[in-house]
Amino acid sequence: MFHFWAMSQDTFDPDIRRAGRAACSNAESRFERLAMRYEDDGWARDEAPVTLRTELRQERARRIITYNSSPDLPFDRSINPYRGCEHGCIYCFARPTHAYLGLSPGLDFETRLIARPNAPELLARELHAPAYRVAPIAIGTNTDPYQPIESTQRVMRNCLKVLRDFNHPVAIVTKGTLIERDLDILAPMADRGLVRVGVSVTSLDPAVSRRMEPRVPSPARRLETIRRLSDAGVPVRIMTSPLIPGLTDHELESLLAAGAGAGAQAASWIMLRLPRDVSPLFQEWLQAHFPDRAARVMGHVRAMHGGRDYDAQWGRRMRGSGPYAEMIAARFKVAARRHGLDRRQPALRCDLFTPPARAGDQLALF
């Protein structure tokens, strides 16, 4: 059964402690007809401040594989074990998806999470379907499958077991070091050419990283994850995504050098994307943490998107356009070649896909 929360408040009590949270506000979903706001009635003045805690609900999903036809994505199907993400990255382009649940893309996205415990069961059922045609499944392209709640929910691990049993190819994107727990599954899959991983490192500055992505492991710890995956034989690329113009883009060469030093085999980059609710949340965060750079950052962003905060057109939404975007692309190309990261990861194998026999299945004659 799926449980909804009550409507999100426009703002929380200002005395609530938001330690480890990036969003500065909690505006209603854009689909809500009514708005609520906090009003101090004067009665709680002497009470100790309350810390904003993470809440978890469960959803019994009806389907788990999502298909897309986007020409600028290298995959046509994906899985999302969780809705919302405790990592709390302020720039996360998945934040607007919380609005479809009647929740805020702001603090709700970071604190009101939804697990999908029947995902492995649904995945096995959908892979068994006679009409299913194998192609790599992407996981982590929306919310992180290795966010902190995975340590207890284990939805991602159980999905990996299904993919392993079917010999199904999978591409994983994460910032979470919890992926190391699953090396007992990933390493044998990598030996068969069935898995590759992208680890996102957005800045080498721990202070900047902590403000942008408050519950993500430190940059140094993520680089260690790249090393451990690589040492286990898992193909891994460093993802310098997103690059934030005027804030983190000056680190591009250093990020690639650090990734190569940790054992990454390839690299990729995406420019900051600010769709829908993400733009006001990001700008509010900029003013709170980097007011001296806010105008410059947003000036570069708008210059790359035709004067707008975001251009959703295919072919431009990931990289932007214009001189600044071209300069970043050129810098990436040069630095990637210098560090041996200018190569594609090996194609994942689809020829090994074999649905395992189920109780009651007719056995093969030969």
Results as ranks from 00 to 15, higher is better:
3 H>G: 06
5 W>I: 06
5 W>Y: 15
9 Q>G: 12
11 T>A: 14
22 A>V: 04
23 A>E: 03
24 C>H: 05
40 D>I: 15
45 R>W: 07
45 R>Y: 08
47 E>H: 11
50 V>H: 03
58 Q>V: 00
69 S>V: 10
70 S>F: 13
70 S>N: 10
73 L>Q: 13
76 D>P: 02
79 I>P: 05
80 N>W: 01
88 G>W: 08
89 C>T: 04
90 I>E: 00
107 L>Y: 09
109 F>T: 03
110 E>L: 14
116 R>K: 15
117 P>I: 00
127 L>Q: 01
141 T>S: 15
146 Y>A: 14
148 P>I: 01
164 R>H: 13
170 V>G: 08
173 V>R: 02
186 L>C: 04
186 L>E: 00
201 V>I: 13
201 V>S: 02
201 V>R: 04
202 T>N: 08
222 R>L: 07
223 L>Y: 00
227 R>N: 11
243 L>G: 03
246 G>T: 01
247 L>I: 01
247 L>V: 00
252 L>N: 09
254 S>T: 14
260 A>N: 05
272 L>N: 06
278 V>R: 04
279 S>D: 10
280 P>M: 07
281 L>I: 05
288 A>D: 05
288 A>L: 02
295 A>Y: 04
306 G>P: 02
306 G>A: 13
314 W>C: 06
316 R>W: 07
323 P>T: 14
334 V>M: 00
334 V>L: 03
339 H>M: 08
344 R>W: 05
348 L>G: 05
352 L>R: 14
352 L>P: 05
355 P>T: 15
359 A>Y: 10
364 A>T: 13
366 F>M: 03
